[in-house]
Design a protein around this nucleic acid. Structure first.
Length: 648
RNA sequence: GCCAACGUAGCUCAGCCGGUAGAGCAAGUGAUUCGUAAUCACUAGGUCCGCGGUUCGAAUCCGCGCGUUGGCUCCA
């Protein structure tokens, strides 16, 4: 059913009728010789196509050159082939596997190589790549049969490629891309010549399991990135540098918020300053719990494994739990609060009139995480969630989830996280419970999302082992995504714990359980929030909300008096009593990211106030103690993101 | 857990081919009494991650362990 002719609509609105099978390169040539030379790829209806791949259908068409942002993925993909080529040139006999799917930022290639690549190897590979790039080798695309492709790779001794080839489903077009001596099984698209790869850099090496499965052999991976220009490459590394500057592990150390000890791997110590922030996060949730009708409980840490056998954790979550034998009984530290809340629920009979029952718990959780996966505060072994379980009637699910959406949005807004992304995760492989209950739970969540009218994405197989879930993903100040809140619907645990309520008609019915967390893990949230603010915490969270800086020792008493009145108003304020010059005190205050610095000299001591210096805004001039107290308490109580309102 | 790199003073880091440790900041003391991002001087501070090995001699080379970092995998 191939058309004889296709019609391409160009960016300027003009249309061209061409024989089907014309290549983007030919189209570019028809538009202009220079465009053809500069072409990196074609784009048909928003999809990047290879310059040499015949066009078989009509659509909106344009030619991409190095100037187009979309060309980056093509350049990186091509640099990937150059990388593999360079490795094969330098280390004959290396067996190649494959590159990366997503070339949005990086490229990578996996090799079967007898040892790890060293930094020196990387340097040599980079030099060899530079040579190949300079040679301006043209990329050639050939469509082949499965047998022809097999021939090619057999002749080259590329065993892994033969496995990859066999994985390609029947009926799919098989194409090879060559440049110079190198040939790879590849869909493309690629640049015309290697010298169109303007700037590239290898980043690092790592081990990587074949097809990402740890039961398979480990290959050696090399990562890199490439751009059309040196400036873009530099901008990429500047972005990485910015992320490093915001790294919560660095900020946590610099601002004396938390630390880690080898004696408690992956378990944070929150220092006094960090604990203030931590407790403010808890206070925010407790404040909202009043409004949203939650009741807080305190439950045990250590449970007889009998509990986990009953809940299904022993079966499905065992490898993430810490065990301990005492009194010839096997115990485990809780990795989640849900089973203990079921035990708590079952301590007495419930009427439908009590539901929904919203049970909140800031209990400490322990999960065994493999040593290689822990990371700062974002992946720890000991943590606490702003956790709650809602026991409700099936008919209340919709209203509960609607209320949860309100709560989530309220909280994220408080931190200035932009519109959260919403994901629906369905039944995973390792699931417990009746498939019919799963279907019911998934359908309910879907209905709730549709009723709310928010866009969402489905993550098939990504649910918790006891129920499907809705996840909330926020974007931080530099655009990174973080999964925070979660709502999980659970028909399984109430059944396992035989939970009941007495319905209006006097019969015993089974409640539904909703697991939910808004911040998620407080530890992870702490880290995410710290990076989001780059350490510049809003006043309500700042461990030291203001610091009073006497100009010299002479004004120490005035400074202490000012501090006294602010502390009396409930603010966290210190005095810099060191024998230093004002400039040094200001510098240290700024570096400590204190939101407000209050300078007291002769004039201010006289007037009973201070000169106010607000972070990132500089000197605002003098205010009285009363003015400062009013502004700061208002800012703190309203949890404003702005440390000092304009004009105050 | 697997692959790789790293681990030197509280922090950031120097220490070439092995000859037994150094800077800046921070800390302590003294002087200075200072007006919006670093005052000066002095002092103290180190089982060079741990354990073995090679060597006349190890922070340096090798092995093992622990931890950290980046990946794989996993995930709140």
């Amino acid at each position: 059913m191939t058309e004889q002719h296709i019609t391409l609509t160009l960016p300027d609105g003009s249309r061209r009728e061409l024989p089907a099978g014309t290549t983007p390169l030919e189209v570019a040539g028809a538009i202009g010789e220079r465009l053809a030379r500069a072409a990196v790829a074609g784009m048909l209806d928003g999809v990047i196509v290879d310059l040499r791949a015949p066009l078989e259908r009509s659509g909106a068409f344009r030619v991409l050159t190095a100037r187009d942002a979309e060309a980056g993925v093509v350049i990186r993909h091509s640099a990937e082939h150059v990388l593999a080529d360079a490795v094969e040139r330098l280390f004959p006999g290396t067996i190649i596997d494959a590159g990366r799917q997503d070339h949005a930022e990086k490229f990578q290639y996996d090799f079967r190589f007898p040892r790890g690549f060293t930094p020196e190897d990387l340097e040599r590979i980079e030099q060899e790549m530079a040579r190949i790039v300079k040679e301006g080798r043209p990329f050639e695309r050939t469509a082949v049969t499965r047998e022809q492709a097999a021939e090619v790779f057999k002749a080259r001794g590329e065993e892994i490629k033969l496995v990859r080839l066999a994985d390609i489903p029947d009926g799919e077009m098989i194409t090879l891309f060559r440049h110079g001596e190198f040939v790879d099984l590849c869909r493309g698209p690629h640049v015309q010549r290697t010298d169109q790869i303007g700037a590239f850099k290898l980043i690092e090496t790592s081990g990587a399991y074949f097809k990402g499965d740890e039961r398979n052999e480990m290959l050696q991976r090399v990562y890199g990135t490439a751009f059309a220009t040196k400036d873009e490459l530099a901008a990429y590394f500047a972005k990485i540098e910015e992320a490093r500057r915001r790294d919560h592990r660095r900020l946590g150390k610099d601002l004396d918020l938390f630390s880690f000890s080898p004696l408690a791997p992956a378990s944070p110590f929150f220092h006094p300053r960090g604990a203030v922030v931590y407790n403010e996060l808890v206070a925010l949730m407790r404040f909202l719990y009043k409004e949203f009708g939650y009741k807080e409980v305190v439950t045990p840490q250590l449970f007889d494994v009998e509990l986990w056998k009953r809940s299904g954790h022993y079966e499905a979550y065992r490898e993430n739990m810490f065990f301990s034998d005492v009194d010839e009984r096997e115990f485990s530290l809780k990795p989640m609060n849900c089973p203990s809340h079921c035990v708590l629920y079952a301590t007495h009979a419930h009427s439908y009139r009590e539901l929904p029952l919203r049970i909140a718990d800031f209990g400490r959780l322990h999960r065994y995480e493999r040593s290689g996966v822990v990371q700062g505060l974002t992946r720890v072994r000991s943590f606490c969630q702003d956790d709650a379980h809602i026991f409700c009637l099936p008919s209340q699910i919709g209203a509960e989830i609607a209320s949860l959406f309100d709560l989530m949005f309220r909280v994220y807004e408080t931190f200035g996280f932009s519109q959260p992304g919403i994901y629906l995760s369905t039944k995973p492989e390792k699931a417990i419970g009746d498939p019919a209950l799963w279907d019911q739970a998934e359908a309910t969540l879907r209905q709730c999302l549709e009723a709310r009218g928010v866009p969402f994405t489905v993550n098939a197989g990504d649910g918790a082992f006891y129920g499907p879930k809705i996840d909330f993903v926020v974007h931080d100040a530099i655009g990174r995504e973080w999964q925070l809140g979660t709502i999980q619907l659970d028909f399984n645990l109430p059944q396992r714990f035989e939970l009941t309520y007495v319905a209006e008609d006097g019969t015993e019915q089974r409640p539904v359980m909703i697991h939910r967390a808004v911040l998620g893990s407080l530890e992870r949230f702490f880290g995410v929030m710290l990076e989001h603010f780059a350490g510049d915490l809003p006043v309500w969270l700042a461990p030291e909300q203001a610091r009073v800086l006497p100009v010299s020792d002479k004004f120490l008493d005035a400074a202490r008096a000012l501090r006294g009145s602010l502390v009396a108003a409930g603010l966290r304020v210190e005095v810099d009593e060191r024998n230093e010059k004002l400039g040094a005190k200001i510098r240290d205050g700024e570096m400590g990211k204190i939101p407000v610095l209050l300078i007291v000299g002769a004039r201010e001591a006289e007037a009973g106030g201070a000169s106010v210096r607000v972070r990132h805004r500089g000197d605002l001039g003098s205010r009285t103690a009363a003015q400062i107290t009013t502004v700061m308490t208002t800012t703190a109580q309203s949890r404003s993101l702005d440390p000092w309102p304009e004009g105050a």
